[in-house]
Design a protein around this nucleic acid. Structure first.
Length: 586
DNA sequence: AGTTGATTGCT
DNA sequence: GCAATCAAC
């Protein structure tokens, strides 16, 4: 949105009678309140706003007027193409690692290496740590720790190839692009390679750097890598973007069928020229930093998380291999059972790029009896579809960028009156709701930085529908605690659960937490593992320890009673959604 | 990737 | 009583 459009929207708002509520701080006083989505790449600090204010704020954007940074980016690429093509290779080529922390099957890294080799100059790798960026993205401390540990593995692997990995901390994220250009100049690098990220600020940054690189003497090559099928490649018969998974998935499969080379893997980089170690001695000696102040783990947490989450791409491929050779055969039947061990648990690797989604899909294809993505073994086909959800949500993010601005995908859902009951929210966060299955899930998250997918859906539905708490508070809590927190998947999943997202999930689809428990944790194994108060309860009573079959055991152990009644909550939820959507409540 | 309540047909 | 089925939320 250009400033004149912002003004026009303001006028429109006035015309529609949208006024500041007098009880709240004047909106113009909120820093960033009037930021247009096309503001130059800068921090949009989501933590600043109380959620109820955020809901007001997000009503103000005219979603159809928000520019799509993917178009801005493509335009930047077109405009600079010839200039970038004729940039001569100078003394070095740089690859910038972001969420692609691997050397195997990494497109930008592969291209960077090929470029360097073509002129026999060294490849230099960099990674920038920015505390402000972590803050803006609500990155969990456990995830930061995982990334920093992965950098050690990466540095080691690169060193084997005489390639340095230079890691620098840049406090303000707005300063990152220029700092990178400075480094390029210092090293005499005229080519910078990196894989595209699709969140709004990130995509804006890729566009900005593609453009400003030209005047800084650096040809910036931001390439699509993180998705198996790049956003923009798929559109419906009428040329529109898909917002429903099933037709999108059919198009995704068809695309890969006609473009089989999209599943060819990229080779690791070549070895650097011999003098690289001498010439860049200081870079080889650079140390991986400690976690910044705002993302420190306690000693106890370090001990706990590090043993659970070994870093690096070797671990990632080992998990993938083990999954495809052993577990995938039971996947179709068992993937919804959180107590089991039936899933690949590679989410952390997909989100930090220690595993390429392309590698994962290609390996699943090769493990299939048909050697194809569809047909053949049910477990494999099912798993491919699950990995494809990740692509789907990134496509949605790229084409409906306002989901990055705390807006629901469906604008009419901004009118739902959410609850902001902190006491209930805290019960949800700490796993003290009195619903054993929900509490088990939340405690698994708090203890391990991970939660089974089925459990994620159950707790999300419980927060949004039973507690009617603003789903964005849950979305944030997940990001603050998940080791695999990825914006697109997390946001997409929460939108799905709250029925405000893509994919038609009617608002009246409300999970029954007790039914979910009985169906997906029939023996109560998951509950007993995570809710120690209920460990001794036998049989079906575990699902509802104060219900008909109850003994005194739960009370003795101090387990809380249900914080809300599901039947009442369900009715309240249906009513509130109807009101918000302006439907007849009769 | 749902739940509920009513109805039906069976024991 | 109880499971299967179906429409409506």
């Amino acid at each position: 949105m250009v400033p004149s459009q912002v003004a026009a929207n303001c006028a429109k708002r006035k015309a529609h009678g949208v006024e500041d509520s007098p009880s709240k701080k004047a909106k113009s006083d909120i820093p960033g309140y009037n930021d247009s989505p096309q503001e130059e790449y800068d921090i949009v600090d989501r933590q600043f706003y109380p959620p109820e204010m955020e809901n007001e704020r997000c009503k103000q954007y005219n979603t159809s007027a928000i520019e799509r940074p993917i178009e801005t980016f493509e335009e930047a690429q077109r405009e600079t193409q010839s200039e970038r093509d004729k940039t001569r290779v100078k003394d070095a080529v740089v690859h910038w690692f972001k969420c692609d922390l691997r050397i195997t099957d990494n497109k930008a890294l592969h291209l960077a290496s090929a470029k360097a080799k073509s002129r026999s100059v060294p490849l230099i790798c960099i990674h920038i740590v920015s505390p402000q960026d972590y803050k803006a993205h609500v990155t969990s401390a456990v995830r930061v720790d995982f990334v920093l540990r992965t950098l050690e593995v990466l540095k080691e692997d690169l060193a084997q190839l005489d390639i340095p990995l230079y890691v620098e901390t840049v406090a303000k994220r707005k300063a990152i692009p220029n700092r990178i250009f400075e480094l390029c100049e210092k090293w005499g690098a005229s080519h910078l390679y990196t894989n595209i990220e699709y969140e709004v600020d990130e995509l804006r940054r890729e566009a900005l750097m593609t453009r400003t690189g030209v005047s800084n003497g650096v040809a910036v090559h931001a390439v699509p890598d993180t998705c198996v099928v790049a956003p923009g490649e798929l559109s419906s018969g009428t040329g529109n973007q898909y917002s429903v998974y099933s037709p999108w998935f059919r198009a995704w499969l068809a695309y890969l069928h006609t473009h089989p080379h999209q599943l060819d893997l990229f080779d690791p980089p070549n070895k650097n020229p011999e003098d690289a170690r001498r010439n860049f001695k200081d870079l080889f000696e650079c140390e991986i930093p400690e976690a910044p102040e705002n993302k420190k783990l306690t000693d106890e947490e370090k001990k706990r998380f590090r043993s659970m989450w070994p870093p690096g791409e070797h671990e990632a491929r080992e998990r993938l291999g083990k999954f495809l050779s052993e577990k995938v055969h039971h996947y179709a039947d068992a993937r919804n059972i959180p107590a089991g061990n039936s899933t690949a648990i590679v989410s952390v690797h997909l989100s930090s790029g220690t595993l390429s989604a392309r590698t994962a899909i290609a390996a699943a294809r090769d493990a299939n009896s048909t050697k194809k993505l569809d047909g053949g073994e049910k477990g494999i086909v099912g798993w491919i579809s699950e990995v494809a959800w990740r692509d789907f949500y990134k496509h949605v993010l790229a084409h409906w960028p306002y989901v990055c601005m705390n807006k629901p995908f469906k604008p009419e859902y901004t009118n739902i009156q959410w609850e902001y009951n902190n006491e209930l929210f805290q019960k949800w966060c700490t796993g003290m709701t009195g619903y054993p299955f929900i509490d088990a899930a939340m405690r698994q998250l708090n203890h391990t930085g991970y939660m089974h997918n089925r459990a994620r859906m159950a707790v999300a539905s419980f927060l949004a529908k039973d507690l009617l708490i603003d789903w964005r508070m849950g979305e944030r809590y997940f990001m603050e605690h998940l080791i695999d927190g990825d914006f697109a998947s997390n946001n997409g999943g929460w939108g799905f659960s709250a029925s405000t997202g893509v994919d038609p999930q009617p608002y009246f689809r409300i999970f029954n937490p007790l039914l979910q428990s009985e169906r997906f944790d029939a023996d109560g194994e998951y509950i007993r593992k995570w809710v120690k108060e209920l460990e001794g309860i036998e049989g079906k009573a575990i699902h509802d320890p104060y219900g008909r079959k109850a003994t005194k055991a739960a009370e003795k152990a101090g387990y809380p009673k249900m914080c809300v009644d599901h039947k009442e909550s369900r009715e309240r939820c249906l009513k509130r959604y109807k009101e918000g959507l302006g439907r007849d409540t009769a």
